[in-house]
């Protein structure tokens, strides 16, 4: 049984232009999958349909045998605790400490009052330290987030996702704002997470070579449609050109 099943997914933001069109794919538990495509292809939109940060217009998203589109508020919260998310701009709360930001990942398990009064258990705090240590930033635990470098902030973002104990992690261009060195560190950690912890990873990427190096499987998205879906090894030059190339040629001629 696949962990995630996307069937005929379509998305319109304004009622006219289709940002996603008839997207179909399945993801097995433990897979490391990368979605590539030019800017505006709908990669971010696709990820956000999976945890319903944007509403689904057509088709279905089935996660863990449950229909995401049909979920009510409470079930949706439950779904989101099971899905971690990592962002290009890290999306941390800048004035709070690293450890506080990591613990924000536990809100899905808390009642409103517990969350508002920051009632975290000792186990949760120790777990946060354990994760920070695993990503090599435990010594920064009490620093304010805005005092860290980009790569360090992204690692905080990863810890926040991991402490949710998710089955799936969605990464929206996790390395787009980082230099090559930090990018490699982050990608290595993501790969390690998927192999060691068995967490499924869906990673939006701009860099084809990075996708080919790390992902087991690649989905190529172009103008909202899947134009490639297969093992990374089988993504050849002509397909890459199909995904990106014509787009650029169009840009040049126009």
């Amino acid at each position: 049984m696949p962990l995630l099943k996307v069937e005929g997914l379509g998305k319109l933001y304004d009622g006219e232009t289709k940002v996603l069109r008839d997207v179909n794919f399945e993801v097995e538990a433990g897979e490391f999958l990368s979605i590539i495509g030019p800017s505006g292809a709908g990669k971010s939109t696709l990820l956000r349909c999976i945890n319903r940060m944007v509403e689904i217009s057509e088709g279905k998203v089935i996660f863990d045998d449950l229909d995401v589109g049909e979920m009510r508020k409470k079930e949706l919260r439950k779904l989101r605790t099971n899905i971690g998310m990592i962002f290009q701009h890290y999306n941390l709360v800048p004035r709070l400490t690293v450890i506080e930001n990591v613990l924000h990942g536990r809100f899905g398990y808390k009642s409103t009052l517990q969350g508002v009064f920051a009632r975290f258990t000792e186990e949760e705090k120790e777990r946060a330290f354990f994760l920070l240590d695993k990503l090599g930033i435990a010594e920064h635990a009490y620093k304010r987030c805005d005092q860290l470098s980009g790569g360090q902030q992204q690692r905080v973002g990863i810890c926040r996702a991991l402490i949710q104990e998710p089955k799936l992690i969605l990464c929206d261009e996790p390395i787009a704002s980082l230099d090559p060195n930090s990018s490699k560190v982050i990608m290595d950690y993501l790969k390690q997470i998927s192999t060691e912890m068995g967490i499924t990873c869906l990673v939006n990427l701009h860099q084809v070579d990075v996708a080919k190096e790390y992902a087991d499987r690649i989905i190529g998205l172009k103008k909202g449609e899947i134009v490639f879906d297969g093992p990374s090894k089988l993504l050849y030059e002509d397909q890459i050109e199909n995904i990106y190339g014509i787009e650029t040629r169009e840009l040049i001629t126009v």
Partner: peptide, 13 residues
């Protein structure tokens, strides 16, 4: 805004 998005995605109320 972005941290609001991030917390929504963790299932926060």
């Amino acid at each position: 805004q972005s941290s609001v998005e991030a917390l929504t995605a963790t299932g926060a109320t």
